[in-house]
Design a protein around this nucleic acid. Structure first.
Lengths: 199, 199
DNA sequence: AAGAGCAGAGAACGATCGTTCTCTCTTGGT
DNA sequence: ACCAAGAGAGAACGATCGTTCTCTGCTCTT
């Protein structure tokens, strides 16, 4: 077996097990069995468990944001619809089997106080999400795009948390309608010409 | 030492340690030392660790919601300001030393897949919060108070998650302004007479 | 064909976990 | 004063954790 193939098999098993059951609940031996590699290979690819944890989180971060961006590019109608398409993607994600909330928030709650590395990865993930949403918001004419982007990220995180705890995918739709109101209200003479209330 | 006093000392130590460092990272022996009771006493009060975990979460739930309600009662000016006062309280909570996000979301991410009891407690906590916010919203004249309450809870959870990951207490203020927009927009001819846009 | 080197399987190790047991000491009733 | 009962302190137990080591067998070069 190739070394690169072993790495991806280990990371695939780690992502499934860590996300499903938490990090501390999964032992290296069970991981080895799920990946189908030997313990020697496992420690050859990842010298310690926290290395595997960090790599798992980083790979999930890039994959998650790539999937989101691809969905938005494919499904959004016009620049104004792109921020709202984010919530449509969330709705599809919430409905997936095995959805268990934000992997970074879970990892941070479990190990954030102990390991500063997972805290750093989680922070980078959230900053990258904010940067992406800010880019989406800049394409629609609103006053203070950064402030609106931060509000939308609040709705995103809230929807993820709500869907994780309650198991109700409808949180995405509620967040979407709230986002539409916020975007509309932040608009300064947008496409439909509704003026800012500005009291 | 009284048995009730032992219980509260154990619960106080458990709340501090579990919330600070996660549940699985804290052993019963360290807990015993922090509480200043004997192991026999500990297992006499809580026959197993998951009993202690569940009791810790339930007590934190009632205390958390009581503190929130007391703050809202004390600081809100008028019925319309009560939902907004929730976010003021969040801001003070976020700024506290040792703030580490939502204890129920953290516990659920760590043990939710393993223990269904912590999942149930977390769900009950979030339902109680939604019920409380719904009660606040009903006092201000809006169309569809339940929908608005759900949106506000999304903002609350998002602010907690954002503050937990990034350590920025400003999330509470951003959520507050977003909440003000949503409340204003949901109003059906409220106190200031702004009509619903209703497109 | 033979020896060197690497890969897989899993035993082994020390540490730590949740939980129980033992031993000693105090205390209260008669 | 004496005995029963319970409390505290911590040793002990089996399980499991992350990590390393050993042993066996295959493969590749000359």
């Amino acid at each position: 077996m190739d070394l690169d193939e072993a790495r991806t098999r280990i990371l695939d098993a780690a992502e499934k097990l860590f996300y499903d059951r938490g990090i501390q609940s999964v032992g290296m031996d069970e991981l080895r069995t799920a990946a189908g590699v030997s313990l020697k290979r496992l420690y050859q690819c990842f010298p310690a468990k926290h290395d595997l944890v960090e790599t798992y989180l980083r790979r999930r971060d890039t994959r998650w944001r790539t999937a989101l961006a691809e969905y938005v590019d494919a499904h959004a109608d016009g620049p104004a619809g792109r921020p709202l398409a984010v919530f449509d993607w969330l709705g599809e994600w919430f409905a997936e089997d095995g959805f268990r909330g934000c992997a970074f928030l879970n990892a941070c709650g479990e190990l954030g106080a102990t390991s500063d590395r997972v805290g750093r990865v989680a922070r980078e993930h959230k900053e990258a999400l904010l940067a992406y949403v800010t880019g989406l918001v800049r394409a629609v004419p609103v006053a203070e795009p950064e402030a609106l982007a931060r509000q939308l990220v609040l709705l995103i995180d809230g929807a993820i948390a709500g869907a994780a705890l309650m198991g109700e995918p409808g949180a995405a739709r509620q967040a979407r309608t709230a986002a539409a109101v916020l975007i509309e209200e932040a608009g300064c003479g947008g496409a439909n010409g509704v003026p800012h209330k500005g009291n």
